[in-house]
């Protein structure tokens, strides 16, 4: 329980800036596709007997680069490609994982996470990986923000958009891979995006939005795990449900305020 709480809180803080950028750049669907392709990475990791987190990370980065490359063609909107791919990736992942007979795999654990099965090694991933992610975000904060505000303008002003974007994609892949253990690949993007959505109406600056996102995520992790322990409900989904309720309240309040 303590380990679950520590892992969840660590992830909540690491995910906050990434979640904000995903929301600002309207990349939720993009992230969703990358995350769901993560299951292929699990299969790959099992097949090659390598670290599963690394496998997921690798596949996530490959899929993300593929998507960026697809988005350069103009015949089909990226949105449609994502709609197609994220189901295909999930299907391929489920097939791949189930075809690997040994070791036996807890598919539900990968899909929805198993926060109470967090090992000490996972904690190392969360905190070491998280520290690196936060450091890089802090370092690239200005160019990331400028790209999120207006990509063409930032590029014209000299921001190296390809490089910054590539770094962002890698960060996203790391967070997805690490978060998979806790909330599963189906709920990873919710863990990133929902707190950011909840924070948006309450924030006046980008930085405040990140801090609020982290606070909402931290609160949701605590409440969700408490719910989970009390009601014996699955951990990851319980956290996401709490986040969604907070987002619902926040958006409702914003809508009511907007109508006045």
């Amino acid at each position: 329980m303590v380990r679950a709480l520590v892992a969840g809180l660590g992830l909540a803080i690491v995910a906050a800036p990434l979640g904000c950028f995903v929301v600002w750049q309207r990349m939720a669907y993009f992230g969703e596709t990358v995350a769901q392709a993560g299951l292929i990475g699990v299969a790959l990791g099992l097949a090659l007997q390598m670290n599963l987190t690394l496998g997921v990370m690798l596949i996530a980065i490959i899929i993300a680069c593929l998507l960026l490359w697809f988005s350069r063609q103009k015949a089909v909107a990226l949105d449609s490609i994502l709609g197609l791919l994220h189901h295909a990736a999930l299907a391929a992942g489920v097939i791949a994982v189930s075809m690997i007979g040994w070791p036996p795999v807890d598919l539900m654990g990968f899909l929805f996470g198993d926060v109470f099965a967090i090992a000490r090694e996972d904690l190392v991933w969360i905190f070491a990986g998280g520290a690196v992610v936060l450091a890089v975000v802090a370092w690239l904060w200005q160019p990331l923000l400028r790209l999120a505000i207006h990509e063409e303008l930032a590029a014209a002003e000299g921001v190296d958009r390809d490089r910054v974007r590539a770094v962002f994609i890698i960060l996203l892949a790391v967070v997805i891979a690490v978060a998979m253990k806790i909330v599963g690949i189906l709920l990873v993007m919710a863990f990133l995006v929902v707190p950011a959505v909840a924070a948006r109406p309450l924030a006046g600056t980008p930085e405040r939005m990140v801090v609020l996102t982290a606070l909402i995520a931290v609160g949701s992790v605590i409440t969700g795990l408490w719910l989970s322990a009390t009601l014996d409900s699955p951990g990851g989904p319980s956290i996401v449900i709490v986040m969604s309720i907070v987002a619902g309240i926040s958006l409702t309040m914003a809508a009511l305020k907007g109508r006045q």
């Binding site: 309207r26 200005q142 160019p143 999120a148 505000i149 207006h150 930032a154 002003e157 006046g204 980008p206």
Partner: peptide, 19 residues
């Protein structure tokens, strides 16, 4: 086109200062 993305909270002053 400068569609301000309503999802980024940003004041005019900050927008001018950034970068």
């Amino acid at each position: 086109r400068f569609d301000v993305d309503s999802v980024i909270p940003l004041t005019v002053e900050r927008f001018l200062r950034i970068g």
